[in-house]
Structure formats: structure tokens, C-alpha cells
Design a binder for these strands. Sequence first.
DNA 1: ATATTTGCAAATAATTTGCACGTAA
DNA 2: TTACGTGCAAATTATTTGCAAATAT
Lengths: 113, 113
Amino acid sequence: MLHRQRRFLTAGDIQHELNGVDAKVALSTIYRTLEHLKSRGDIATRIDDAGEAAYIYCEPDHHHHHAICRKCGRVDDVDCTTMEQFAHSVLASSGFALDGHDMEFTGTCATCR
Amino acid sequence: MLHRQRRFLTAGDIQHELNGVDAKVALSTIYRTLEHLKSRGDIATRIDDAGEAAYIYCEPDHHHHHAICRKCGRVDDVDCTTMEQFAHSVLASSGFALDGHDMEFTGTCATCR
DNA sequence: ATATTTGCAAATAATTTGCACGTAA
DNA sequence: TTACGTGCAAATTATTTGCAAATAT
């Protein structure tokens, strides 16, 4: 199911998606499955505006970033190769030895415009 | 106290900083003060690796990003003007109308190298 | 039969809130 | 006095865990 979704879902969202109105899958099962998927490197996590963890099926090992539509929540993957080099050069002057970065974009996707 | 610190502190960290070993300021007071500071636009928040909220005194309205040293935790501010234009052009081709972004860098600061 | 997964309920832990008390204007 | 900030304890909420029943190998 996660594989079909192109947006971030909380544990509760996932439960609703799986079960409709009446819950059939326990939250504990969902959390355990999410942990399993994370250890396999199959999902990315973020904290939403309410402070709740949200999950999306993707390949975090293939380093990339996410553009999240404010209207429909759909997530587009954004390649970061060039961005990474750029960030390096920007920070080089400050003496900060960069070894990682994390970016997230928000806006309106092509469909919602 | 926050103004003097150049790193992200959790509510618990703040309590320890203020009181040393024996606590004199209640956590509820700290949370309420943090909320107050946030509404004034005086602090930025992030979620640390343990999933706990961490706070730093800065001016989020003056849009910028943070470079966090992996060794000492010190935070350097990173201007984003050029980065922003760059992100715009990268995303323009995907049809995604960018209206915001969030970036965080990690590495080793000039002092710790 | 044996190992693994599940649901349920209880435990955890960060954060929030109610309330009585102290402090300041 | 009157409004406001504080501490404490209880409530809230997402997440984790123990355990017994269910399912799969």
C-alpha cells in the first residue's frame, strides 16, 4: 500500500488507509512493520506540523530530497547532485567541513496548480 | 541563557543549564517560555535524532539555515539567498511551484577540525 | 511442531494543562 | 487588590513493549 502512495502518511493514516472505517490492523503491527521497512532502507521519515512522524516509501540510500505539495500532499523526488556540490562551495568559505545535508521543499505540484 | 548558547537544546538540556544538578525551574515553565519565544519569532525548533524537540535562539524570520557540528553541536548560520534561487531553477523544470524550503547541514565546524 | 506475526493492553516518555500559590503592579 | 508567572501533579498523546493467541513454515 505504501508503495502506491506518493505522500507522507502517519501511523494513523496508514491504519485508516488499510482498514477504512473499522480498524483491523493494530497500530503496534504498523509501527513494527515501519521499523522493519526502515531497517531495510525502504522508507523515509519526517515529522509533520503536528509533531507526528510520517512515512513515505522511497529509497533513502539513493540520496535525494522531497518536494511536498501544500494542497494534495503529493511528494516529488528531487535529485540533489548539483545541489550538493553547490552547498559544498557555499560552505567552504565558512570553514565548515560539510559531510551531510537535509532538504525539504514545499509548494504546489504541477497537478494542483 | 539561550541567547548565549550557539547550539540546539532540548527542554531537559535547558533545565540542566539553568539549574545545574538540582532543578529549580519546572519543565512546564520552560515549555511555556519556549512557546512564548516561538510566538515572538525568537527561536527555531528541530527534532533531534532521539525524536525530541530542540531549540535555538535565532531569528527565523530572517530566513537562513543551520550547519550543525557533529562533534560539538555548535550551529553556524548559513545564508540561503543564492541557494534559494538555485532551488527555484532546479525545480522549475519539474513543474513544481516552490514557495518554501528547509535545509540543514551537518559536518565539522572550523574549531573542531 | 516450531518459528514468526499479530492484537491487545499496559508501560514509556515528551509535552500540555488545571489549579493553587506566590509575586509583582 | 488584581493580574500574571510558577511549580506541582495529573492528563494527554504518540510510540514501544510484554505476552498470549493466531498464523505460517
